[in-house]
Simulated assay, not measured.
Amino acid sequence: MSCTNPASEFEALVYLVERLVGRFPECSEDELFVLIADELESFDNVRVRDYVPLLVEHNVLRRLRAERAHAA
């Protein structure tokens, strides 16, 4: 497994969780898994899957930043 060149979508999502845990230590892994699953579901019907992990990461980061801003 390589974080810079994941072999599969699943592998890329595993690394996404690791990155998010590091960036948002106030969130539990379970909370992050829920956000990731929610965003991943929105891409269920996408044929080309190459960019799905990147798009999921972008959307989860946007949501987490919005929650931080709202809490402040």
Rank of each mutant, 00 (worst) to 15 (best):
V48T: 02
P53C: 05
P25K: 02
R68L: 15
L13Y: 01
L20F: 01
D50F: 07
A66S: 09
R23E: 14
D50N: 11
E11S: 06
N59F: 06
E31R: 02
L13E: 07
F43K: 05
L40D: 05
M1Q: 05
D38R: 13
R63C: 12
R23M: 10
S42Y: 08
D30W: 08
V21H: 05
E39T: 03
V14P: 00
A7Q: 15
T4Y: 08
S2L: 04
C27M: 12
V60G: 00
M1V: 07
H58V: 12
A71Q: 12
L13D: 02
A72G: 09
L20R: 00
P53H: 04
Y15G: 03
E9M: 00
A72D: 09
D50T: 12
S42M: 15
A37G: 15
N59E: 14
V17H: 05
L16A: 00
L32F: 09
R65S: 10
V14M: 09
R62S: 10
M1W: 02
L35A: 14
R63N: 10
R47Y: 07
V48P: 03
N45A: 13
R68M: 14
R68D: 15
N5G: 00
H58Q: 15
V56M: 01
E26F: 09
S42A: 14
D38P: 01
C3A: 13
L55Y: 05
V46D: 08
V17L: 15
T4R: 07
L16V: 02
L54A: 09
E39F: 06
V56H: 01
L13N: 02
S28I: 07
V14H: 06
N45I: 04
D30R: 14
R63Y: 08
D30P: 03
V56C: 05
R23P: 00
E41N: 13
G22C: 11
R19D: 14
A66N: 07
R47K: 14
H58C: 13
M1H: 09
F43P: 02
R19F: 09
V21M: 14
R68T: 11
E11Y: 00
N59T: 04
N5R: 10
F43I: 07
E67L: 12
R23F: 02
V34T: 10
V48Y: 07
E9C: 03
F10P: 00
L20I: 02
E9W: 02
F33V: 09
G22Q: 10
D38E: 14
A72F: 11
S8D: 05
S28T: 15
V46C: 08
V34W: 04
E11F: 01
A69D: 07
L61W: 04
L55F: 06
S42W: 11
L61K: 12
V17P: 00
E31H: 06
